[in-house]
């Protein structure tokens, strides 16, 4: 590329909350360096582009595309294919694009149940005629089309191949800048093919300054139920901190200020299912009853274990808050009874 022609940057927002866009802007005055280094080719949040503009670009025109948001609708999927075609480097940016995040928790239920709570049963919704979104609506002028709402939320890499993954909900601004700076200065990136960038290689505990000891947990607490000791590992205190099963990179922001790590940076290398790993780890350190096995009735032991487990509120929303779409679970069976009422957790 010549000095005049700057590399092209795209940032897209699919099914997500918008926090990823804000996080990019949160890199502060470095945003001016980004503007100096790149031409913006698509960034709905900050500049007015139309789909037809993107369709008009030659293939591979966009040098770097940061795609945030999960694939929830036919529009999300269409844009994923389009941006893959037009981008040299496609990054699954943030937890929704890389793991499914909060939107993918609706994989625990069905589209119908989701609609029901969004458009019908919601106390703040007034919809006496029970109108639900329809992909096609006939009007005198012809047919109106809106995107199809899928039953299952998917990640970007379940739809198109991605080159890099930047985890986080949202990715932290210093990590975003570090990656952009590396690209601007032409520093070497890992080999593409889904490699993780902008994050660590060990668990959050590595960055957390709390004291860690051997663990024996007799019950769990929700955040409002306990004032945590400021210096000791939160998990040891019975707070369901996911730091042990979560990739570092955030600087342990949450546990450092007494909030449990919710797991947004996703699993570590080689881990197939973050939630399952967390469950397995927790199961290993629960202390039920006296802790001695000999002479204890098995049913009694099961009851004791059950008592501890009952203190874990919303297990799937706790262990799979960010990783449902990418987990071994993926979703509930859509013909299963539990899925129909949208209830259950």
């Amino acid at each position: 590329m010549t000095a005049k022609e700057k590399p092209k940057l795209a940032m897209y927002w699919a099914s997500s909350c918008g926090g990823c866009d804000i996080s990019v802007l949160n890199i502060g005055d470095k945003i001016l360096d980004v503007d100096q280094a790149f031409d913006i080719a698509l960034w709905p949040c900050v500049a007015d582009f139309k789909i037809k503009d993107v369709k008009g670009y030659p293939d591979g025109y966009i040098d770097l595309c940061l795609f945030n948001g999960a694939i929830r609708t036919s529009e999300n999927e269409e844009m994923a294919h389009l941006l893959r075609q037009k981008s040299k480097v496609l990054v699954a940016f943030g937890s929704c694009a890389s793991e499914g995040c909060i939107p993918a928790l609706s994989n625990l239920t069905t589209k119908e149940a989701t609609f029901k709570s969004s458009y019908l049963d919601n106390p703040s919704t007034d919809n006496p005629e029970g109108v639900l979104p329809q992909p096609v609506t006939k009007v005198p002028e012809g047919e109106l089309h809106i995107p199809v709402f899928y039953n299952t939320v998917k990640t970007l890499d379940q739809v198109v191949p991605v080159d890099y993954v930047m985890p986080g909900c949202p990715p932290e601004p210093p990590q975003i800048w570090a990656v952009l700076e590396a690209i601007i200065t032409g520093a070497e990136l890992p080999a593409p093919g889904g490699a993780i960038i902008g994050a660590g290689t060990v668990a959050v505990c590595e960055e957390c300054s709390r004291e860690k000891h051997e663990k024996e947990i007799e019950r769990f607490y929700r955040p409002h139920e306990i004032v945590p000791d400021p210096d000791v590992c939160l998990l040891e205190q019975g707070i369901m901190c996911m730091g042990i099963a979560t990739r570092a990179g955030c600087g342990a922001l949450c546990p450092e200020v007494g909030m449990r790590c919710a797991g947004c940076y996703g699993p570590l290398d080689g881990i197939v299912d973050q939630g399952a790993n967390m469950v397995s780890a927790i199961a290993s350190v629960v202390k039920a009853g006296s802790g001695a096995l000999a002479g204890i009735d098995e049913e009694e032991l099961a009851r004791e274990i059950g008592k501890v487990m009952d203190t874990i509120e919303d297990p799937s929303g706790t262990f799979y808050r960010f990783s449902m779409a990418h987990s071994l679970l993926t979703r509930v069976r859509s013909n299963g009874d539990g899925a129909q009422d949208g209830g259950g957790r």
């Binding site: 290689t201 060990v202 668990a203 959050v204 505990c205 590595e206 860690k212 000891h213 051997e214 663990k215 024996e216 590992c233 998990l235 730091g243 042990i244 570092a248 570590l268 290398d269 780890a281 290993s284 350190v285």
Partner: peptide, 26 residues
């Protein structure tokens, strides 16, 4: 060791006392 964050989940699990925690490099 490069991937261990020193969370100490494993420390009291081993029935054979085969796991040691190095305080210095955590």
């Amino acid at each position: 060791a490069d991937q261990c964050s020193g969370c100490r989940i494993c420390n009291n699990l081993c029935p054979y006392n085969a796991i040691v925690f190095h305080e210095d490099d955590e």
